[in-house]
Amino acid sequence: MSHPNDEDPAELFRSAIGQVTPLRKGSGPTPSAPKPRPRARMAERDEQEALGEFARLLRAGPPLDAGDALSYRRDNLPPRMFQRLKKGQYSVQDELDLHGATATQAEQLLRQFLLEAHDHEHGCVRIIHGKGLQSDGGAPVLKNLVDRHLRLRNDVLAFHSAPTAQGGTGAVLVLLAR
């Protein structure tokens, strides 16, 4: 047997919850203001730290110009191996092109690339950073970033700007420790 009120959903609801006591105005919790949209504070902090690190690296020495060659050799690397690198006589096993990347993106890409090169036991890689002719302020940002970053890495034995046929002063050949 069905009640005549079974069809009215509002009446069903009232009978299910029972008797209620209305709240007085001002009693109980008040609705709070909407919460602010979340911000990527950690990403913003990382970006600022990376820019600070880049600025510190640039202050470590005079910045390179667009036509300058990148060149570095650890003392324990035989000069003959460095000469072969300068001439482009090592087989390039992988390549990273940084064109169009921001300084922060380039640093992340460079770190990841070198980790993967190490994991694959590559001996020689090429990094294309461009000559920096489009850089604001004159100094080629990516070229200087690559130069400073590679000098700080323990797994880099040597690097030198590529021969003209392999990118010239817009690319660098890197000899890695295995």
Rank of each mutant, 00 (worst) to 15 (best):
M1R: 09
D8A: 03
E11F: 05
L12M: 12
F13A: 14
S15C: 00
A16K: 05
I17S: 05
Q19E: 15
V20K: 12
V20R: 14
T21K: 14
R24F: 03
K25Y: 11
G28M: 10
P29G: 13
P29D: 11
P29N: 13
P31S: 09
S32E: 11
R37D: 10
R39W: 02
A40R: 13
E44F: 01
R45W: 12
E47M: 04
E47R: 14
L51Y: 06
G52H: 01
E53G: 01
F54Y: 15
L57R: 13
L57S: 11
A60Y: 02
G61Y: 00
G61D: 06
P62D: 04
A66Q: 15
G67E: 07
D68L: 02
Y72P: 04
R74W: 06
L77Q: 06
P78V: 11
S91A: 13
S91N: 07
V92C: 08
Q93W: 00
D94W: 02
D97L: 04
G100H: 02
A101F: 08
T102G: 06
T102R: 14
A106L: 03
A106G: 12
Q112G: 04
F113L: 09
L115T: 09
E116Q: 15
E116Y: 07
R126E: 00
I127A: 03
H129T: 11
L133H: 14
G137L: 06
P140T: 10
K143I: 01
V146H: 09
L150D: 06
D155A: 04
V156Q: 08
H160V: 13
S161K: 11
S161Y: 09
A162Y: 11
A162L: 10
P163F: 08
P163E: 05
Q166A: 12
Q166N: 10
G168R: 13
G168A: 15
T169R: 01
V172I: 06
V174Q: 07
V174E: 02
L176H: 03
A177C: 02
